[in-house]
Amino acid sequence: MKILKFVYVLMPISIILSFMWAPSAEILGNTSRIIYFHVPLAWGGVLAFIVSGIFSILYLSDKDKKYSMLHEKSYNSAQIGMVFTILATISGSLWSKLSWGSYWNWDPRQTSISVLLLIYVAYFSLWSALGDNSRKGRIASAYLIFAMITVPFFVFIIPRMYPSLHPDPIINTEQKLRLDFEMRITLMVAIASFTLLYFYLLNLLNRITVIDYYARDKQDEK
């Protein structure tokens, strides 16, 4: 997992590129630089949700117990995803205020991200309500898979059905990037660095979970 430490190099590069190398957009001015944080954070939130879902599916299908503590890892991923999603929402609403004049207007993409937040909140509520229940992992994993069904509807269908103030997705229906070269490179570096940050944090939390598990085990032995 040494590659994850590359985040220490890539994240400062991404910040420097965002503020010093990439040009500001024509109409939006310097406020357009939020894109280098808002888009990668939103991507991180969705990625964390997908990873949580994959861990949940593996946990439920792992009859031979080949993998350990997958449900805890799924929970860890969701925790990071929640933080990323909150930050994406805050950065998005700040940008919305600066360019559209209001912090929130139920644009389809704002609705999608708030639904993602609600799913995370529901998942954490269920997790804590299950307490020490022996089936906690199974039930929470089942819920996450169940909630995942609605996500494609909000992320892909609703934003295309209803008029949106958001620009076309960066990779749009024509499969073309409509950004200057410098902006495109900066955005790609930002997405890569936030993805790396996500995996770095996930690895850290997973290691803490394992240590915590063995520490409790030792305590129980005493």
Binding site: L118, S125, R135, I139, Y143, I149
Partner: peptide, 27 residues
């Protein structure tokens, strides 16, 4: 239906059912 089963296993807390159902039923 399945959410009701989950809530029953979590001790049947009333507000939990609403919290976990809302995101799924929003569409």
């Amino acid at each position: 239906t399945i959410l009701g089963a989950m809530v029953s296993k979590a001790g049947g807390r009333g507000s939990l059912f609403t919290i976990i159902s809302f995101p799924v039923l929003l569409p």
